[in-house]
Computed example of a mutant assay.
Amino acid sequence: MELPQIPPMLATPGSLPPARQDARWAYETKQDGQRAVVSLPGDGTVLLRARSGRDITAAYPELAALGTALGSTPAVLDGEVLALDAEGRADFQLLQSRMGLADSPGLAARRAARTPVHLVLFDLLHLGDRSLLPLSYTRRRGRLEELGLSGPAWSTPGAVVGHGAEALRATREHGLEGLVCKRLDSVYEPGVRSRAWIKIRNLRTEDVVVGGWLPGRGRLGGLPGALLVGQRAAGSLRWVGGVGTGWSEAEREELAGLLRAAASDECPFDPVPAVAEARWVVPRLVGEVRYSTRTRDGMLRQPSWVRLRPDLTPEESSAYLPDGTA
Score class of each variant (00 low, 15 high):
residue 37 V to G: 06
residue 47 L to A: 12
residue 162 G to N: 03
residue 116 P to W: 09
residue 19 A to G: 04
residue 289 V to R: 10
residue 282 V to I: 09
residue 102 A to Q: 15
residue 112 A to P: 02
residue 68 T to P: 03
residue 290 R to Q: 15
residue 100 G to D: 11
residue 326 A to Q: 01
residue 247 W to P: 02
residue 101 L to P: 01
residue 292 S to G: 14
residue 271 P to H: 13
residue 96 Q to T: 13
residue 307 R to T: 11
residue 204 R to L: 14
residue 251 E to G: 12
residue 49 R to L: 09
residue 196 A to S: 14
residue 305 W to V: 06
residue 65 A to Y: 08
residue 244 G to R: 01
residue 264 S to P: 07
residue 297 D to I: 04
residue 149 L to R: 11
residue 116 P to V: 07
residue 95 L to I: 05
residue 208 V to D: 02
residue 66 L to W: 08
residue 10 L to N: 08
residue 135 L to G: 10
residue 251 E to Q: 14
residue 17 P to R: 10
residue 122 F to S: 02
residue 59 A to W: 13
residue 23 A to L: 10
residue 110 R to P: 05
residue 160 V to I: 13
residue 264 S to L: 02
residue 154 W to A: 07
residue 33 G to N: 04
residue 54 R to H: 13
residue 197 W to N: 08
residue 185 D to E: 14
residue 278 A to S: 06
residue 183 R to P: 00
residue 176 L to I: 08
residue 325 T to N: 01
residue 267 C to H: 02
residue 176 L to S: 03
residue 259 L to V: 11
residue 206 E to K: 01
residue 215 P to V: 13
residue 182 K to R: 14
residue 181 C to Y: 03
residue 190 P to Q: 10
residue 17 P to T: 07
residue 248 S to V: 14
residue 212 G to A: 10
residue 28 E to I: 09
residue 69 A to G: 11
residue 158 G to Y: 01
residue 225 G to M: 01
residue 4 P to Q: 10
residue 210 V to C: 01
residue 85 D to L: 04
residue 49 R to P: 00
residue 63 L to F: 13
residue 291 Y to S: 05
residue 59 A to I: 09
residue 283 P to I: 00
residue 165 A to V: 14
residue 307 R to S: 13
residue 277 E to H: 09
residue 197 W to F: 11
residue 253 E to H: 13
residue 190 P to E: 06
residue 44 G to R: 09
residue 19 A to I: 07
residue 175 G to E: 07
residue 126 H to N: 05
residue 39 S to L: 10
residue 46 V to H: 07
residue 92 F to T: 05
residue 149 L to C: 15
residue 291 Y to A: 07
residue 280 W to F: 08
residue 18 P to A: 11
residue 230 G to K: 03
